[in-house]
Design a protein around this nucleic acid. Sequence first.
DNA 1: TTGTCATGTAGGAAAAATCCTACATATAGT
DNA 2: ACTATATGTAGGATTTTTCCTACATGACAA
Lengths: 111, 111
Amino acid sequence: MSADHVFAALASPARRELLRLLLEEGGQPAGRLAERFDMSRPSVSEHLKVLRDAGLVAETRKGRERLYRLEPAPLMEIRDWLGPYERFWREKLAALSTLLDEMEDDDDGSR
Amino acid sequence: MSADHVFAALASPARRELLRLLLEEGGQPAGRLAERFDMSRPSVSEHLKVLRDAGLVAETRKGRERLYRLEPAPLMEIRDWLGPYERFWREKLAALSTLLDEMEDDDDGSR
DNA sequence: TTGTCATGTAGGAAAAATCCTACATATAGT
DNA sequence: ACTATATGTAGGATTTTTCCTACATGACAA
């Protein structure tokens, strides 16, 4: 739930790759996900645990498999966190644009 | 420049707090930023280095001070990274909304 | 029931992050 | 030149993360 765990979970390239696979290919059993990594299966399982604790994936037991699926809600917290920075970014762009316009007004072709 | 460094930089609460201070209060010298933390000044300095390496802050030497300012461009990379997940999220919401509508249509008041 | 398959967990080694104190550097003021 | 101030860097202790192999669990299949 806490954004701390979400940011921490996203810090690992392996975990972001897991999210990408679940996004692009849909829910999959843990083993099939692990096959795609140059890493032992238990290690991938631990990464899945971190993602689970952050609320970024959920599992459904299906026989002896466990299907993992993407749970995007916590990512929307990240998006909200970004909001104020994006406003700041836009103001910067707007200021730059204004500056460029003024330079163009001044540009009478002289030198 | 790589998104890896940006995600890693954001993983620390102390570094996110630094970004927040720079956003809400504008550029400040390193020492003034450090005062706000329950942590030694050199440690804050190291956090600033991580943010600098990720391109999230920039410094301007002003006499013997170093003014740090927010550099939001890398955060826009993060926003772009979130894009596909946000689409996925919206589709989920839309599906839920449709489902609720159908349930309402079925709801003839019986039972 | 016995064996097999999919998966998680324990325990530990190695690497990385975090935080500290001491020191180095560079600028400003006297 | 000397001192004070603002800051970064070195070196090291401690904690956390990451990854491994070995083992535990729980469901299916013969």
